[in-house]
């Protein structure tokens, strides 16, 4: 049993080497497929960070009446953050609001002048709230529609932003969906191309398979070397695509970062290189072995 296994592996490796041209064409086809699938994964990472960026820009502010005490607001905040939908709720006191306002308009002398003339602080305290997902603002707003908050809340800027938020929500959702569809279609293409390449290599060996069977080889003994070859294609293709991807990302990543601040593909790649490589190997080996298994089936019936 063990000798048979060793013989199958050895025979697969030898025939991989002796069929250099066929092997290299299969490996390059498969590298392209794996490269494609990995880049799609990376594009997905980009899309996610893009939509996350977009969603991060959405927030709502709840303004409180001027006479509301800080404790009341903080109590409301404690209740608020118990909601699953809330990602963050930042308290901006009246003083902070004033400082921000002054900072923002320090060049506008008329505004500054009128603020000075007013004497006291006209700005209300607020909570800046971010939700986990853009679609959840509606329910956060309804939290503040409870009766106990009626008296202390001045206004919620959700209604003003509602249209924008809805738009952004639908944009991010469709970007994700389109990305997923493209990913699936292209991955399917890559799989088909690889399968066909392997089918051709096995087709070119169909006489050999028949001879093996006629000489008394069992199905596994005839099939084994081809499956080993398929797996070898996968491993080598995974290595090749890794070696292509590394310098490519190193070169491209800074350019992407300048378009989409806050995303560093190269860093992501380096941080996840082992997982990515394992995925590539897994994709390659399973593509190679399964394609070989399926393609060889019809030639074994001798």
């Amino acid at each position: 049993m063990f000798t048979t296994f060793v013989r199958i592996i050895k025979s697969g490796c030898i025939s991989f080497w002796r069929n250099k041209w066929l092997s290299s064409s299969a490996v390059s086809m498969m590298s392209l497929a794996i490269l494609g699938i990995t880049s799609l994964l990376l594009v997905n990472v980009l899309i996610n960070s893009l939509t996350a960026n977009l969603e991060d820009k959405i927030d709502i502010s709840v303004y409180f009446n001027l006479d509301t005490s800080e404790d009341e607001i903080l109590d409301a905040r404690v209740d608020l953050v118990k909601l699953n939908e809330v990602r963050s709720a930042e308290y901006v006191s009246t003083g902070e609001a004033l400082n921000k306002f002054k900072d923002k308009h320090k060049d506008n002398s008329i505004l500054m002048q009128s603020l000075d003339e007013l004497g006291n602080n006209p700005l209300s305290a607020s909570l800046n709230i971010k939700a986990q997902q853009a679609s959840q603002y509606e329910s956060i707003v309804s939290f503040f529609e409870q009766e106990k908050y009626n008296e202390i809340i001045d206004k919620i800027n959700y209604l003003e932003n509602k249209a924008v938020i809805a738009r952004l929500t639908s944009i991010t959702r469709s970007i994700r969906q389109i990305g997923l569809v493209i990913l699936l279609v292209l991955a399917g293409l890559a799989v088909l191309v690889t399968f066909n390449t392997i089918r051709l290599t096995i087709y070119s060996s169909r006489r050999e398979i028949k001879v093996m069977k006629l000489v008394g080889a069992s199905n596994w003994f005839a099939r084994g070397p081809f499956i080993i070859e398929g797996a070898l294609y996968g491993v080598i293709a995974a290595l090749v695509s890794l070696f292509i991807l590394y310098p490519l990302l190193w070169y491209i990543s800074p350019k992407i970062t300048s378009y989409l601040p806050g995303t560093d593909l190269f860093y992501f790649f380096q941080a996840n290189i082992i997982v990515l490589f394992l995925i590539q190997i897994l994709v390659g080996v399973s593509l190679g072995t399964i394609s070989s298994l399926v393609a060889i089936r019809r030639y074994l019936e001798v």
Binding site: M1, T3, T4, R7, I14, S15, R18, N19, R207, E208, K210, V211, M212, L214, V215, G216, A217, S218, F221
Partner: peptide, 23 residues
């Protein structure tokens, strides 16, 4: 009907290997 990717020696050895014949 020899196996084209195997030498004369290997072609003969193959027929013995399929039956699990010792090395």
């Amino acid at each position: 009907r020899l196996l084209p990717n195997k030498t004369a020696y290997e072609n003969i050895a193959f027929a013995m290997e399929v039956g699990g014949c010792p090395k």
